[in-house]
Design a protein around this nucleic acid. Structure first.
Length: 201
DNA sequence: CTCTGGATTAGCT
DNA sequence: GCTAATCCAGAGC
């Protein structure tokens, strides 16, 4: 399967966050394929969004967010974890979509080893867990996900599911923005209680 | 099942 | 020096 191309990521960020649901996230590492269906995302919209890393402009950490759509923005957080985003919209916008949940498909045994966890629903329900399960770290920051074979996103399942919307998780600014999107009733999403604040669209 | 507090380090002011 | 787009163990229900 061919990676999604620039024209997909260069769309409006909210639309990309919704459209990424149901797509297949693929990581090739040491000739093994680790993959899953994207089930939960969050949109971060640059200078319009006080909780975006890019809100106050370009820094060394966030510079890839300003490169245009289709690049990996990976950052280190809470002293232990990595989070994977894909950049969206136009050059200089500073937009990205955080991948918060995937449903494991290929390489599940490898994911269990990397996560030191046997329960399948605990492998990839959270941005830090996804990076741990798929072997994603800061060395992949800035990679072009439309044009490489170790980290990319392809078409996935048919889109016959309901999308739910809620505020984003773990932020302390712009907490009211409904910029978290997930597949309704999917078991590989985070924070069950928080989902009471959601509604389907 | 839900809730709380601690771990741990880079980035930014 | 303070904070963070998180996770997990442990306690309580």
């Amino acid at each position: 399967m061919k990676p999604l191309q620039k024209n997909f990521y260069e769309q409006n960020t909210i639309d990309v966050a919704k459209s990424l649901l149901g797509k297949k996230f693929i990581r090739k590492i040491n000739n093994n394929i680790l993959s899953g269906i994207i089930v939960e995302t969050e949109a971060y919209t640059g200078k319009d969004d006080p909780s975006a890393h890019s809100y106050n402009g370009i820094t060394k950490r966030n510079e890839i967010m300003f490169a245009g759509g289709g690049y990996a923005y990976i950052y280190f957080i809470y002293g232990n974890y990595f989070c994977f985003n894909v950049t969206t919209s136009t050059k200089d916008a500073g937009h990205a979509v955080l991948i918060r949940g995937i449903e494991p498909v290929d390489g599940i045994e490898h994911m269990k080893q990397r996560r030191n966890q046997t329960k399948i629903t605990e492998l990839t329900n959270g941005p830090g867990k996804i990076c741990q399960a798929l072997g994603i770290d800061i060395s992949l920051n800035g990679i072009d996900v439309t044009n490489n074979d170790e980290l990319f996103i392809t078409e996935g399942i048919n889109h016959n599911f309901k999308i739910s919307v809620s505020p984003r998780i773990g932020i302390s600014k712009a907490e009211d923005l409904p910029h978290r999107f997930f597949i309704h009733d999917n078991q590989f999403i985070t924070r069950h209680k928080f989902n009471k604040l959601s509604h389907t669209i």
